[in-house]
Amino acid sequence: MNHWNDLLVLILIVSAIYLALSLCFFGLTRYVRKRRISEKYLILINKFRLFYKPTAWLVIIGGFIALDPVTHGFIILLVLGVGYKHLGNYISGLFLRSSPLLAIHTLVKAGKIRGRVNKIGSLGMVLGTDQGEQWVWFNSFDRAGFTLISNQTNEQQRSLYLKSEHSKEKLENLIFDHPILALGKPSNLKSLSAENTYLLHYTLVKGAQQEDLTNYLNDHDIQTNSTEKFNS
């Protein structure tokens, strides 16, 4: 990429693709609701659209840096340094927002916070609590340990912090082979900055209890906690 016109063309291309995805999502939403058929295809398209947005930004930023690697690279590093907190909230929210359980009116429990989702943003959400509306950043929501309870199906999506000397691959085999996790539902194991520490997002099968999973993990030398602060 050698000219600003090339960057403009790149922006127009990724914008056109995002617009096409949005129109496809809108049309499929109306079709699914009108025909009253399974929403699994709608969920897949919504996830693709959600993760396409940051990917498109990375492509555009890459094109911007290519115009002048030294100067533009320094500008991007400066912007990232200033907006580090907001970037962390955005990244933490990607997985949560991709979950079909996170929707308006979903019941949320996170630490001392309990309420229903009134609004979902890119960096956090507005909860309706007994004390009124409250803004919660996705990062804070993740660190507090959370439970999402669907207003329609009563399914529960939860988060759990793990600490173990097992490799991540072995942990995934132990966790995702367990029948307590709902097949086809959002589940993810993420490595954290602290050594041998992970964050697990998972959905339980109906009628299952979290204690069943924590007992199973403890039996395999895996510590569990609702927050990232483990006892020494």
Rank of each mutant, 00 (worst) to 15 (best):
L127C: 03
H166Y: 12
E133L: 02
N154C: 05
G124I: 02
Q134R: 08
A194Y: 12
R114A: 12
S191A: 10
N139W: 11
H201K: 13
F138N: 06
T106I: 03
K170T: 14
L183P: 08
A208I: 00
A144F: 02
V126N: 03
S150F: 13
A110L: 08
R114C: 15
Q209A: 00
I104Q: 09
V117N: 07
I113V: 10
Q156M: 13
T129Y: 15
S164L: 00
K109S: 01
E165M: 06
L162V: 10
T129W: 15
N118R: 14
F146C: 00
A144D: 00
L192W: 13
Y161R: 04
T214C: 02
F138Q: 05
G207L: 09
T129I: 04
Q134I: 04
L107V: 00
R158N: 09
S187V: 03
E155H: 14
L160F: 00
N188I: 10
S193H: 12
K109Y: 08
L102D: 04
E211R: 12
S193L: 11
G115P: 14
F146Y: 06
S164W: 01
G115L: 04
K170Y: 13
Q131P: 14
K109V: 07
H105F: 11
G128H: 01
F141Y: 10
K109T: 07
T197W: 15
I180A: 02
I113W: 14
L123H: 11
K168Q: 11
G184N: 10
F146V: 04
R158L: 09
F146S: 04
L127Y: 10
N188H: 15
V117D: 07
E211M: 14
I149Y: 03
F141L: 12
L183C: 06
R116I: 02
Q131H: 11
F146K: 01
Q152R: 12
R116C: 00
I120E: 06
G132D: 15
I175S: 02
G184T: 03
A182F: 10
L107D: 04
L107K: 07
F176K: 06
Q152L: 15
M125D: 01
N173F: 14
G128I: 01
L127D: 01
I113P: 05
S193C: 15
T129L: 07
R143A: 03
L123W: 13
V108R: 11
D130G: 11
N196V: 09
A103W: 09
L162I: 13
R116E: 00
L123P: 10
R114M: 12
G207C: 13
E133G: 05
D177E: 13
N173E: 13
H166M: 08
T203E: 04
L102A: 00
N154F: 08
L192C: 07
K206I: 07
T106K: 06
T147C: 12
K163V: 08
L127G: 02
W135I: 09
L171A: 06
S167N: 08
K119I: 02
I175N: 15
K109G: 08
N151M: 05
I104D: 09
I120T: 05
A144V: 02
S191N: 05
T153L: 11
D142K: 10
Q156P: 14
A182H: 03
K163D: 11
